[in-house]
């Protein structure tokens, strides 16, 4: 069935609330407003204010309360409006959600799902546009996924709710209106597996979330030049599906990592490292990266577009790894 990413999320939320009385949704403006991105529109009317709870502007308290409710036997879904605002709750995430199982010697479990929007492209400037999911992926004790398709938006949520540990779902803000095919059944992939979105043979382009569509657009362009790029959608950022990544790189012998996070200390750095650790002798060129420019995202469209990864930049990086000597600026 075709539906938007937003509708897919709403379908998933509706099903989750219907299926399990322990599930409830809370966050800023999820109820009366219908959700900042309208993902929860109509749910308050359907499920009532106990299960679709509008919270005050208190990110630290309501994310923390989600952790507490999960400890107390509920299955909370907490929506944080945007990743930039989630920084107010980072203490609860890193110091509690991620640690309680371990610190308690395995006595405690935090089956919490946190959803939030991430990413740029809407001209909402430097306090609303960042891609910080890579920071979350740094933290042991939590799991991090990034649905890039409507199908994954539909089916990652129920899978996340079955996890005994906290799962963070990052929804790229540009994806909500995107339409896609949504299967009647979950799968075929498990929650934490990467997907090959487009098979190829010359280079593996690794992306997640909002960058997957850009990688696919680049691959289309490259195909007209006779370059067959394989596009790998990470889907899960923690854990990373090393096996699928390395299998693809070993076949294509070249890799480009696309990451809307900043390059320094990024998820792309982690992936490039794992490729050199696991497939160094299979590589025909250094791993290349396409990341956001190292600047808080500026407001004007031309500057924002330049700051973010774009299909043209991905194409250029791919052409670069196909000519390694030039790209590395090394020996002729």
């Amino acid at each position: 069935m075709r539906m938007t990413y937003r509708e897919a999320l709403r379908t998933a939320l509706t099903e989750a609330l219907s299926a399990d009385p322990r599930v409830f949704l809370m966050g800023e403006d999820v109820g009366r407003y219908g959700g900042a991105y309208a993902a929860s529109k109509g749910l308050l009317e359907q499920f009532g204010p106990d299960r679709v709870r509008d919270t005050p502007l208190s990110e630290s308290a309501f994310v923390g309360a989600g952790i507490g409710a999960a400890l107390g036997g509920m299955r909370p879904i907490v929506e944080v409006m945007t990743v930039n605002f989630s920084l107010l709750a980072l203490d609860q995430v890193v110091n509690s959600a991620a640690t309680l199982r371990h610190m308690s010697g395995g006595q405690l479990s935090v089956p919490l799902v946190v959803r939030m929007a991430t990413g740029g492209g809407r001209q909402v400037a430097a306090q609303h546009s960042h891609s910080l999911e890579g920071w979350y992926a740094h933290v042991p004790g939590i799991r991090v996924v990034a649905p890039a398709t409507a199908h994954d938006a539909r089916w990652m949520l129920p899978a996340a709710l079955r996890e005994p540990d906290p799962v963070f779902i990052f929804e790229h803000a540009m994806l909500y209106p995107e339409e896609g095919e949504v299967g009647e059944e979950p799968g075929p992939l498990p929650l934490f597996a990467a997907a090959i979105r487009r098979p190829g043979r010359d280079v593996t382009v690794i992306a997640h979330g909002g960058s997957v569509g850009k990688a696919l657009a680049a691959a289309e362009q490259l195909a007209t030049e006779g370059i067959e790029a394989e596009v790998l959608d990470l889907r899960s950022l923690r854990p990373l599906d090393d096996a699928t990544i390395l299998e693809s790189v070993r076949r294509c012998h070249r890799a480009v990592v696309v990451d809307e996070g900043w390059r320094s200390g990024s998820l792309s750095a982690e992936i490039a490292s794992r490729i050199s650790e696991g497939a160094f002798f299979e590589l025909d060129a250094p791993v290349a990266r396409v990341c956001s420019a190292e600047v808080p995202i500026p407001y004007p469209k031309h500057l924002e577009d330049t700051a973010l990864p774009q299909p043209d930049g991905i194409c250029a990086a791919v052409r670069g790894v196909l000519q390694p000597a030039q790209a590395a600026g090394a020996k002729a």
């Binding site: 430097a126 306090q127 500026p298 407001y299 004007p300 500057l303």
Partner: peptide
């Protein structure tokens, strides 16, 4: 200088 827009 245009960097912030309406909110900044």
């Amino acid at each position: 200088r245009g960097r912030g827009g309406s909110m900044h």
